[in-house]
Design a protein around this nucleic acid. Structure first.
Lengths: 206, 206
DNA sequence: ATCATCAAATGAGCACCGTTCAATAGATTA
DNA sequence: TAATCTATTGAACGGTGCTCATTTGATGAT
């Protein structure tokens, strides 16, 4: 039997990782997490299933890496939106719009992030954690700016909660629960909640 | 070949449905949506795979029915919590605690609700929609009560947003994102947001 | 230049999954 | 009792993720 091919070195390890991530990210965008298959990724890049496992360890870890890639793209998208409105624009509205727009434009990427659960015995790699922190950082900076305050514990605590609030509205909007409950504009409602909270804090600490 | 057994009528159709739902719900509780298998449900109730498909049409529709069952249990749980605090207790706190407690005590049921996506060509049955509406109804009533107002469009709109807010905080808490961002008590934060919003509305319409 | 060593890549094999559908046998009706 | 009906079956099919003995290209030593 002539079965194994041994090391080919068509690509370096780093190139191979990028190849897999790139093809995998495109596949998630196309078919969503439900239709995702590590085998299909292997097929598309012309490597075998075994190679995917060699490089990423498991399908779950590959998906985690793909979701981190989505987070990074999302953070970049938010930065662009903020850049576009400029220093005097409505930066909070841009931030909320950026959250929703990313979810609407890249629904499969977005739902994959929140639908995927790592097995209990697995945890995020440091690279994954770092990538996912970018988004939080952007929001923290904007909240500090909106409150004319330095980035302190209060601002971080508040940002966390505001992200959760916007996320809840966005998750319901994308998942259909918002419409099921008879709602129309989830984004506007989310923005109203954000303004409300920030103005409550402003009153509080004045 | 001696293969098929034909109709046995050990159970009526309704009994069979209940048998499948009951075993399926227990299986989801045990292994989560990721480990769920319609074949395993069939095995546990002593019927064949084919029967599950005869009764529910597809694995996705079975899961939708199981999630509806979770919603109904959740609504009952909330009612108990409200009953327990009584008319003069902190009913809003009970509601938020009930939301979080259900998710914490029945994590697999809770995550299954939000992780599952019906295929694009399938939609919820009317029974499913009704079951899921129970929870909204409970919150609407409590919000009206908190504001000393009748149940009108304003109250419904507000309730929708408050559910989304609490959901966002709970989703992050259960999913680990809250801790990843350095947060500690998501429930307390969610309750603070709810109080804030309700007091803003009270000021507004006075 | 040759050889031994090493590790990257393979893919058949395994145990599972959901879905389909012809065959069957128990219940019902004639 | 016989004919009909239909609930139930489970093999078959095409997929999945994961494992690991095997192979072979590249590397380092002689």
């Amino acid at each position: 039997m002539v079965l194994a091919m041994g090391r080919r070195s068509d690509h370096t390890r780093a190139e191979l990782e990028e190849l897999i991530l790139s093809a995998g990210h495109a596949l998630v965008a196309e078919v969503g997490l439900g239709g995702f298959s590590a085998r299909e990724v292997a097929r598309q890049i012309g490597y075998s299933i075994g190679t995917i496992h060699n490089v990423f360890g498991s399908s779950d870890r590959l998906i985690a890496a793909l979701n981190t890639r989505s987070f990074v793209a999302w953070a970049a998208f938010l930065r662009e939106q903020l850049e576009a409105v400029g220093d005097d624009g409505d930066r909070l509205a841009a931030l909320v719009a950026g959250y929703f727009d990313f979810a609407r434009q890249h629904t499969h990427w977005w739902t994959a992030i929140y639908d995927h659960r790592l097995p209990a015995d697995t945890s995020l790699s440091e690279a994954d954690e770092a990538g996912r922190g970018l988004l939080t950082g952007i929001v923290v900076d904007e909240v500090a700016r909106a409150l004319s305050r330095p980035v302190d514990e209060t601002v971080v605590t508040l940002s966390r909660s505001l992200i959760a609030t916007v996320h809840g509205h966005c998750a319901f909007a994308i998942g259909g629960a918002w419409a099921l409950m008879g709602g129309s504009d989830a984004e506007a409602t989310a923005l109203a909640r954000v303004r409300e909270t920030l103005s409550a804090v402003t009153l509080d600490t004045r």
